[in-house]
Design a binder for these strands. Structure first.
Lengths: 260, 260
DNA sequence: CTGTGTGAAATTATTCACAGCC
DNA sequence: GGCTGTGAATAATTTCACACAG
């Protein structure tokens, strides 16, 4: 996450495993839906199904928070909503600033999912002077020059970067200098930040690439089963290494059809 | 991932750990940047820094692909770009369809990062008849009624769902029925899919919630160090359980100031 | 010498399975 | 009797550290 050396573990927080933290929002979403339907209690099995995980994992996750269930009965929905919200820090209001109001930035500004969960879009910032003043999602866009002031005035500690990749690091540095300590980065760049600043990234094309990997694998298996030739595609000339040596990659340099 | 029982591990694919697959796109991005700067070779240390991971992990990751480096020298950039691209299935063209052309769908349609890496937006689909024909990012929006035909005509195997949550499962079912086997889901819903279909999700508000968790933790530590009181916020009345029993949650029911 | 490739160790995450409480 | 909470078992991932190829 951070750039600096890892002195302390930092992988856990208050004893709650990172993997568990990442699932709490999932549980919270499922619980909120139940709450809206006025369901009073739910079993680990039901809730797990609604959240798309298995029940053992869910129970283990909850065990890190405390004993909030009732044996033989299940969990009190409202109570659990509150406990998870508190654990995630959602009982307070988090003003966020979005920097880079292009298509994606505007889409995020309009995204209802933020407001619904304790996050408030406090400011929109863009480097284009022409945009200054134009309201997006009802919020006037402000110019990058005022970034510092905007961050402090609004008490923003979470910044969202939706700039082009070339501008991301600079924006990041300015956000951090202004006091932001958590960054959600949509720009396809690795950001370096000082110790103590958290960065999470969302990279749309990475997600697709992971899907493509599995998709390709399925196609291969299918072909193996069917006897159908893989849709060879138009392989570009595979680059050969400057110093050809004995490689041992699974398929080697030649575009073969199937591995073992 | 899939709904059905897990007969086979499914966590690995062709022997490459899932965690490694998830990082390959990162390495590829860093390598592509080097390639554009005509850098001929790179060491694991340098590449790791550029990708934001540590070098031991990178070398271990590459070891699953084969021995593509040269001891004492490093990795041939072009060669590695090709090998990783091939491994990820990016030497072929993947037509994707985006369903739900609201703010986010439109932003994705306009997102340059897709085209740059083997993905082609082959179709935009929306349920609103008024949108039919309107071009978004130069591609005419088509109506959901024709979803089936659009998917097969374009040979789409990867679908992107950017509909409101209520419509997501239905759209997902139709995509799967039409032959889509990989789905990137932006709707904040758990999708159930038959075995053999991969789903990856991107949930913007979940990412923020994870940041908020860590942010809250920082605030706590700071307060502990400063002696400054936490900005107590306006705690809503914490719900009390129907049957009050001896809880053992770290902070209990009362809004306390600091944990141990 | 330098920097890869990789067994072995350490850490983290998931799953099992069942005692204990309601 | 049903369902939570959790130690113990298993699996996955990361990190270490060093042999050895170039």
């Amino acid at each position: 996450m951070a750039t600096g050396r890892t002195h302390r573990p930092a992988t856990r927080s208050r004893g709650i495993p990172e993997a568990t933290v990442a699932r709490l929002p999932l549980y919270l979403r499922a619980l909120t839906a139940l709450s809206e339907r006025s369901v009073p209690t739910v079993s680990s099995e039901e809730l797990a199904a609604a959240a798309g995980v298995n029940s053992a994992k869910l129970r283990k996750d909850f065990s890190y928070l405390g004993s909030y269930g009732t044996r033989g009965v299940g969990y009190d929905v409202e109570y659990l909503v509150y406990q998870i919200s508190r654990e995630l820090g959602l009982t307070q209001d988090w003003p966020v600033a979005i920097v880079g109001i292009g298509n994606l930035g505007a889409a995020l500004a309009n995204y209802g999912g933020f407001a619904s969960r304790g996050f408030r879009v406090a400011a929109l910032i863009d480097a284009d002077p022409a945009m200054a003043g134009t309201p997006v999602a009802g919020i006037p866009v402000q110019h990058t020059d005022d970034l510092d002031r905007i961050i402090s005035d609004n008490g923003v500690s979470i910044g969202v970067i939706t700039t082009p990749p070339g501008a991301a690091q600079q924006v990041c540095d300015r956000l951090v200098a202004a006091g932001v300590t958590s960054i959600l980065n949509f720009a396809p760049t690795v950001l370096s930040v000082p110790d103590g600043v958290d960065v999470r990234k969302v990279d749309l094309s990475i997600e697709l690439q992971i899907l493509a990997f599995h998709e390709q694998r399925k196609a291969g298996e299918e072909a193996a089963a069917d006897g159908t030739a893989a849709p060879a595609a138009d392989e570009p000339a595979p680059p050969v290494r400057a110093t050809p040596t004995n490689r041992k990659g699974p398929e080697g340099d030649m575009p073969a059809v199937m591995p073992a």
